[in-house]
Design a protein around this nucleic acid. Structure first.
Lengths: 219, 219
DNA sequence: TACATTTTGCAACAGTGTTAGGCAAAGTTA
DNA sequence: TAACTTTGCCTAACACTGTTGCAAAATGTA
């Protein structure tokens, strides 16, 4: 029965070309301009063919989402493998995470839902200045004036905000529960605990550090 | 000239009702189902009337975005005002930020672009398990076994991820540069510096802490 | 060749954002 | 009051979007 084999192969070719085309669109024109109709046009098939491969438009996005997380996981694993010491592993993974995000911007944006229209347009909001002033105020107040010359409150402000936003956003998209079905290894740290932990580290960091810790060589 | 006054008033009433209706839609049905046409229908005007008040659909969203940031800034300022000590101010602001996000979910989602379709559907991605395993692995390896009984690697993992994601996402949406036009107060901490700083705090936190720091009473 | 099955595409439905053009009411002037 | 101008508003269209029913065409089987 080589015929059904060939059919299978052809079907998968079409599927792949759908994904390829879709991805190319996303990369070159952004998420907003990616439509099933355009893909259909590009692969020179009619629209319903796409629906015979994917249930939804979302299903296609989900595919990319999956691939994105896999890529990220691999990248981190690699970065980790290059370092024997745990602390350096963490540093390496952090850096790898960062470069992954910006080298695969489209993936990252899809994975975490960044890119709603407003975010691209609405940057110069005056209240943002208030926001940053309120926070940096306290940060500056924490270190006695004159001491710690290398202290950069603006940097700390960004750290603080990043931590907060990351925490919120990961919890809000309920990305935080990988649903291990192992026997109840209760890996459900309450978000509030994480928040306290994170703030604790942050404050300690300010109180303790005057110069950045020794930076080990990269990889 | 009371007539033009009245006209002005009426125009602003319509404007307000547009915003009200739009917001109600967003809250009750989510961002996805908010359309100009529906708003027009609800306020019993035709579509072009809305376009006479707002240039775009985005312009309406921008309005909410602005309001959201203002609200957040006020919330933080209030939380801060309740605390005399800087370290506690920071803690209070962190908690306030957290509750703002979840008590005003719609605002927060809009402000940071959370809520692209995929994020709501695509949670159970197997690669996510890899991802978390890779990271927790290093975290566990950092603390000598047996020591530090209160140590929760899962919690630390979430902290770590939150920091990273927050950092990336804030930088990616270019929300990080409020564009102060003051003379060059060079508040442009390089994101990479922030990254290093954040990781540094994190690692220190693991190496140092066995029990959470004393938690001062809330507000 | 005749039948059955899959594959495919046309065309429609129900939406969306956005805008051009005309109609009618309101205000202004003679 | 009559004529004119301005304003506000709506109808209707354009150009899209995701999604699907149904009929036609291509393919495989007997």
């Amino acid at each position: 029965m080589g015929i059904t084999d060939r059919k299978q192969r052809q079907k998968e070719e079409v599927r792949a070309s759908i994904l390829d085309t879709a991805w190319q669109m996303v990369v070159t024109e952004g998420w907003h301009s990616f439509s099933i109709r355009k893909v259909a046009d590009a692969i020179e098939y009619s629209v319903p063919v796409i629906y015979s491969h994917f249930e939804n438009k979302d299903a296609i996005l989900l595919e990319f989402n999956r691939k994105g997380f896999q890529l990220l996981a691999e990248t981190l694993a690699q970065a980790k493998a290059g370092q024997p010491e745990p602390a350096n592993q963490i540093r390496a993974m952090g850096r790898a995470y960062w470069s992954f995000a910006f080298q695969n911007k489209e993936y990252y944006q899809l994975m975490f839902g960044l890119g709603i229209p407003t975010c691209e347009t609405a940057i110069k909001i005056p209240a943002l200045t208030n926001f940053s002033d309120v926070i940096t105020g306290s940060i500056i107040a924490m270190v006695p004036t004159g001491q710690k010359p290398n202290f950069d409150p603006w940097l700390k402000y960004q750290s603080f905000w990043s931590m907060l936003h990351g925490l919120v956003s990961i919890n809000m998209t309920s990305l935080s529960r990988p649903e291990r079905s192992d026997e109840n290894d209760h890996r459900e740290a309450l978000p509030e605990q994480v928040l306290e932990d994170v703030m604790c580290s942050f404050i300690r960091g300010i109180q303790a550090a005057e110069q950045p810790a020794e930076q080990p060589k990269t990889s």
